[in-house]
Design a binder for these strands. Structure first.
Lengths: 123, 123
DNA sequence: TTGTTATTTCGACAAATAACGAAATATAAG
DNA sequence: CTTATATTTCGTTATTTGTCGAAATAACAA
């Protein structure tokens, strides 16, 4: 029950659902998610931790960058089923389409530049 | 997105998942759910309202009794998918098995007597 | 009618959660 | 080594959520 509840709680937040919708496209680093979601980096980091603890998302560190991707085949059955549900339910959602369009633009910039922009934004 | 979020939030509570596990067996009235879940009637009523607003559960009033059952075929696709996910994910869960065993005993009593017992319990 | 009873609504409170910015950590670059 | 930068952790605050009991509602019974 604990595992299942970790999954359903992880799915019970709009911004985490949006993050999953973005990861459908491809693996993303934190600053790319931050750019599209429009939240503080610390907030997005926390969201990704929650998704990771529910095993919905895998994490990979490459130098300074943290990359996130949807859980793969080896994940528990509930995780797989949950991701399939989200994928299908999110498909007709407008917000998801807008997010993926925004992501397309973000992906045109190299991640380094993206982070620099965010740093500038604070000024 | 609002509809999807209503569903995922509705699923993000242990007692509501337990209620769905019980309704898998058959339609139940509030006092039967109260008996198995061991919560105040007002609390269970509130939980059922949340499940109903997410369209996961249908409500039927028969005299003084309120009956609840899982959403049927006519429900939106997300609802159907969510219930299928919960059903599968809940299947191996111990708590679900214990709840269904407890329900079996509760169902041996007529609902009237059950409610009277609960009333007595307050003394 | 009057009383009983099943359920819902309301008000209060405690606990959990999401958000931010600042500080800490870790790694690359100079 | 020192600086810059990407991410995480921490402390705080505002909001949401789960719970209960009391009161209100609705429907049957006497």
């Amino acid at each position: 029950m604990r595992d299942l509840l970790a999954i359903t709680k992880a799915l019970a937040d709009e911004n985490r659902l949006r993050a999953l919708g973005l990861l459908e496209q491809r693996e993303l680093c934190l600053c790319q998610l931050v750019e599209v979601l429009g939240l503080a980096a610390s907030t997005v980091s926390r969201h990704m931790t929650i998704l990771h603890q529910a095993r919905l998302v895998e994490t990979r560190k490459a130098g300074r960058w943290a990359y996130f991707r949807l859980a793969d085949e080896e994940a528990p059955a509930e995780v797989h089923a949950a991701l399939a549900f989200v994928r299908a339910a999110l498909h007709p959602v407008k917000q998801r389409k807008a997010d993926q369009a925004a992501l397309k633009l973000v992906l045109k910039l190299p991640p380094e530049e993206l982070c620099r922009q965010q740093a500038n934004c604070k000024c």
